[in-house]
């Protein structure tokens, strides 16, 4: 609810980040529907993501920072890629777009108990903080990535094919 209000306020303020998707088509973090294996069929924005933007989200420390835990061969110019999770090369051979979206929104729906953070989830945390300040959150949390950023990452991961 709060998030919808925020998004509405943001589009009123004319923030371009939302692109052409009208907020009515956005699925809020608390409204996401998961399939039986944790997949999420519906695009969160109602439109395809931008793979180039997705690549930026993967590598950027203050965005997805996915390379903290995953090696991504296609982004080899990013130094210090971690190896806690599997290499993402060939991810699109293993997973459909809906499955990749589900892994991003809340990976625990796909991999029980996984270490991978949920990128589009705003509640159910213990002692949530205000980002990396160490202080208590000062209001409702924002998801780690926006709906649009999730779709951008899904679009990028969908290009990672070995076969």
């Amino acid at each position: 609810m709060k998030t919808i209000n925020k998004i509405a306020a943001a589009s009123v303020a004319g923030v371009i980040a939302l692109g052409s998707a009208s907020w009515a088509e956005m699925i809020a973090p608390t409204d996401v529907k998961f399939g039986e294996y944790g997949e999420v069929e519906m695009s969160l924005t109602g439109k395809p993501g931008n793979p180039e933007q997705g690549a930026v989200v993967l590598g950027n420390r203050s965005l997805g920072n996915c390379v903290a835990c995953h090696v991504v061969g296609a982004l080899a110019d990013i130094p210090f890629q971690g190896d806690i999770g599997p290499a993402l090369d060939g991810a699109a051979d293993r997973w459909s777009a809906a499955e990749l979206r589900g892994i991003l929104v809340n990976s625990k729906m796909t991999f029980e108990g996984t270490m991978m953070p949920a990128y589009y989830k705003i509640d159910g945390f213990t002692r949530p903080g205000n980002a990396y300040t160490g202080k208590a959150a000062d209001g409702p949390l924002d998801p780690l990535l926006s709906a649009e950023q999730i779709e951008d990452v899904v679009a990028f991961l969908s290009t990672l094919k070995d076969e």
Binding site: M115, P117, L144
Partner: peptide
């Protein structure tokens, strides 16, 4: 497990 990243000491220092 704490915080929005939902990690415990054990996730990093025992499992990883």
């Amino acid at each position: 497990r704490t915080g929005q990243l939902d990690l415990s000491c054990a996730t990093c220092h025992e499992d990883s």
